[in-house]
């Protein structure tokens, strides 16, 4: 059977097309049009000569980045922060969702849920100043407790080895509740008959979770994982920037803060674009690789 012509299809589905149009426009305007800006990473971009007037320099800025002695450290910091965020931050909302699912007291469950996703709505600036106050060696109560237990106070934000833990933990605190909403929704789609059958077979709560709930949300977990991989290298600029200082550059200087310094403060637009594009390419490769892997191992994949 021949499907109707495109014009006819469009006419038939015009209501859907109309509803889709704003989204399409958004992506074209804000995601695709700016992409042409990346050409400036191959130019000696001058703001006032514009793209048409600036000189082409090929891979000069890419080479410059790799000649920089800090390049390796910055990439390492970015990748490690991303990896830790994924390693500890990704399972956290799943665990929370499974635990919440086991709660039988509806009001208590809702209360916990609400409290746990509130931090998601706090601005990073607020979170950073809260952390600075809480962790202060002279006035913060985290150190009061440590001192109360008889240990010396720790200057958390001045010691580079603490930076990653503080960043990842606060990130989990901020996002865990919000992230669990999706998994809770996925859990509700599991057929209750499966639980009944499991109980018939003598499965306790733990076995039910292991053999019914988890497989039931596996597809969601895999899709979320692939999406998260794509975001792994996107380390939020604000929080890193606000929490770092000269003493922690060793672990806290990431691509985003470096690009801010050389690109915006120093006005090296081409150089900054080159670095960002390079990281974008790596992020894309990671998503692609994960997707391939997942397709080979199971049926779930993004495309």
């Amino acid at each position: 059977m021949k499907s109707p012509s495109i014009a006819k299809q469009l006419k038939r589905d015009r209501a859907f097309v109309l509803m889709f149009a704003p989204v399409l426009l958004y992506f074209i305007l804000f995601k695709y049009v700016p992409m042409f800006g990346i050409v400036i990473s191959f130019m000696d971009y001058n703001l006032f000569k514009g793209i048409t007037g600036s000189e082409w320099v090929g891979f000069k800025y890419y080479a410059q980045f790799f000649e920089n002695r800090d390049a390796f450290v910055i990439i390492k910091n970015t990748v490690l922060l991303g990896a830790y965020k994924l390693l500890f931050g990704f399972p956290a909302p799943i665990v929370l969702a499974l635990l919440l699912n086991e709660l039988r007291h509806a009001i208590f469950k809702r209360f916990v849920q609400t409290v746990s996703y509130l931090p998601h709505f706090l601005s990073n600036v607020v979170v950073a100043s809260m952390l600075i106050m809480l962790l202060s060696p002279s006035t913060g109560w985290v150190n009061r407790i440590i001192e109360g237990l008889g240990f010396p106070a720790i200057s958390f934000l001045q010691e580079s080895e603490w930076f990653r833990s503080i960043y990842v933990l606060s990130e989990i605190w901020q996002q865990v509740g919000w992230g669990s909403i999706l998994y809770l929704a996925a859990i509700t789609t599991i057929d209750p008959q499966l639980y009944e059958a499991a109980r018939m077979d003598g499965a306790g709560r733990w076995k039910q979770t292991l053999h019914v709930t988890l497989p039931g949300i596996a597809a969601t977990v895999v899709i979320m994982f692939i999406l998260q991989i794509g975001h792994a290298l996107e380390i939020g600029f604000e929080k890193v920037f606000l929490l770092s200082n000269a003493a922690t550059y060793d672990t806290s200087d990431v691509i985003a803060t470096y690009v801010y310094r050389v690109g915006i403060l120093q006005g090296g637009f081409s150089y900054a674009t080159a670095i960002d594009l390079f990281m974008g390419v790596i992020g894309f490769l990671l998503v692609y690789a994960t997707n391939q892997l997942s397709r080979r191992l199971g049926e779930t994949s993004l495309w």
Partner: peptide, 23 residues
């Protein structure tokens, strides 16, 4: 010298901070 100055400043700042806090 732009790139060198950026590295110099960063290295100077983080090293001096670490000398002072005894790291």
């Amino acid at each position: 010298i732009m790139a060198i100055e950026e590295q110099l400043t960063k290295y100077y700042e983080s090293s001096v901070a670490k000398f002072i806090i005894g790291e």
